[in-house]
Amino acid sequence: MRSIGLVDMQSGGDVSRIITSGVGHLPGGSVLEQMRYIQKHGDGFRRLLLSEPYGDPYMSLDLIVPPDNPRAQAGYIIMEAMGYPLYSGSNTICTATAVLQSGIVPMEEGTQHVVLESPAGLAHVTAENRNGRVQSITTQGEPAYVAARDQVVEVPRFGRVKYDLVWSGAYFVLVDAASVGFEINADEMPELAGFGHALVAAARPQVTQEHPELGHVGPLPFAHFMGPLEEVGTGGYRSRSATYVHPGVICRSPTGTGTSARLALMYDAGEIRDGQWLETISPRGSSFIGSVLGEAQVGGHRAMHSHITGKAWTLARSEIIVDLDDPLVDSTDLEGVLDQPV
């Protein structure tokens, strides 16, 4: 029997399950190397906690691990139904809140700067803390860039669909929602999920699995549906947005990486400038704010630095007991990952 310590958080409606204890030492130096080890030798752990009766595929997992970079106070590996995204805005917001409120990183009253190491690199976090609680998190991950514009794919039952390909911690296909008949509201979520599944499956063969600096990043995992832009004052924009996670999930939040991808597309087209911001609103009405920080370079691509601001709430602190004799537990690749028996 093995024990796993958890803190469940939500940001924008998306649940992140933060794993604080119960996993042994993972070989590798960087968090990326530790992620690749558990991906290859311990994927049963991800499947266990994202499947009934221990969890569900709409959750994300964030495993706290030792950082390799001396500038980071903690590391985290992100696990989802689609696999192992290298970076995620909502997961970073939840993880940063959890490590501060649980004391893994000592909390300071007021504005606190924290550096976390994700598989994609360093996430620079600014937390606003008051009376022992995190009021908001602003996170800056790795830069985003447009990898390809004006791509077309034939999607079964939907016909030819135009998309742009953007990297923002993972590859996203970005689609104008109105062009495929969606307004992006809660009632459309089942249909959006079905369309997203067909779109990603069709686009995967023509989308690269290589990143110019990170190497192999796996098959296309995400689609982001863009609503019309509404100008807000002189410095900002607002837009309904939805992110699809393969296979079959429409996120409850607009997602941080989806927001970054939209910003990168706008920045590349000259539609938004340094210092301006975009509020993305999910089909369920939750929102994140993404702000443009400035130009960057990734390989030969013109890229963009941005940060995402949101808030996370604690749902539960718990301990799961995993009995390796349970017939519902596939223990094949768990014993090398889980800590010693309780």
Score class of each variant (00 low, 15 high):
residue 263 L to S: 01
residue 283 P to G: 12
residue 254 P to C: 13
residue 251 C to K: 15
residue 248 G to N: 07
residue 259 T to A: 14
residue 265 L to F: 05
residue 234 T to Q: 13
residue 280 T to L: 05
residue 249 V to D: 01
residue 282 S to L: 08
residue 273 R to F: 06
residue 255 T to C: 15
residue 243 T to P: 00
residue 235 G to P: 01
residue 255 T to W: 01
residue 245 V to E: 14
residue 254 P to I: 04
residue 241 S to N: 13
residue 287 S to P: 06
residue 247 P to M: 03
residue 249 V to M: 10
residue 265 L to Q: 13
residue 264 A to P: 10
residue 266 M to F: 07
residue 269 A to H: 14
residue 248 G to C: 02
residue 280 T to P: 01
residue 274 D to Q: 14
residue 272 I to S: 06
residue 261 A to C: 07
residue 244 Y to F: 15
residue 239 S to Y: 00
residue 274 D to P: 00
residue 244 Y to H: 10
residue 279 E to N: 00
residue 268 D to H: 14
residue 242 A to R: 05
residue 247 P to T: 12
residue 240 R to L: 09
residue 262 R to M: 13
residue 261 A to P: 02
residue 239 S to I: 00
residue 251 C to E: 15
residue 285 G to C: 09
residue 287 S to M: 13
residue 234 T to M: 11
residue 243 T to A: 13
residue 239 S to H: 00
residue 257 T to W: 07
residue 266 M to Q: 11
residue 271 E to M: 11
residue 276 Q to L: 11
residue 280 T to N: 13
residue 268 D to W: 03
residue 283 P to H: 08
residue 262 R to K: 15
residue 247 P to D: 09
residue 283 P to W: 03
residue 263 L to Y: 02
residue 237 Y to K: 11
residue 280 T to V: 06
residue 247 P to N: 04
residue 244 Y to G: 03
residue 288 F to R: 04
residue 246 H to E: 15
residue 265 L to H: 11
residue 239 S to N: 00
residue 285 G to S: 08
residue 261 A to N: 10
residue 269 A to F: 04
residue 276 Q to N: 09
residue 256 G to R: 03
residue 259 T to Q: 03
residue 250 I to L: 12
residue 258 G to C: 04
residue 250 I to H: 07
residue 240 R to G: 07
residue 238 R to V: 12
residue 266 M to V: 03
residue 267 Y to P: 01
residue 256 G to W: 03
residue 288 F to I: 03
residue 285 G to W: 10
residue 273 R to Y: 02
residue 268 D to Y: 02
residue 258 G to P: 03
residue 261 A to H: 07
residue 246 H to W: 12
residue 246 H to P: 00
residue 261 A to Q: 07
residue 249 V to F: 14
residue 254 P to Y: 03
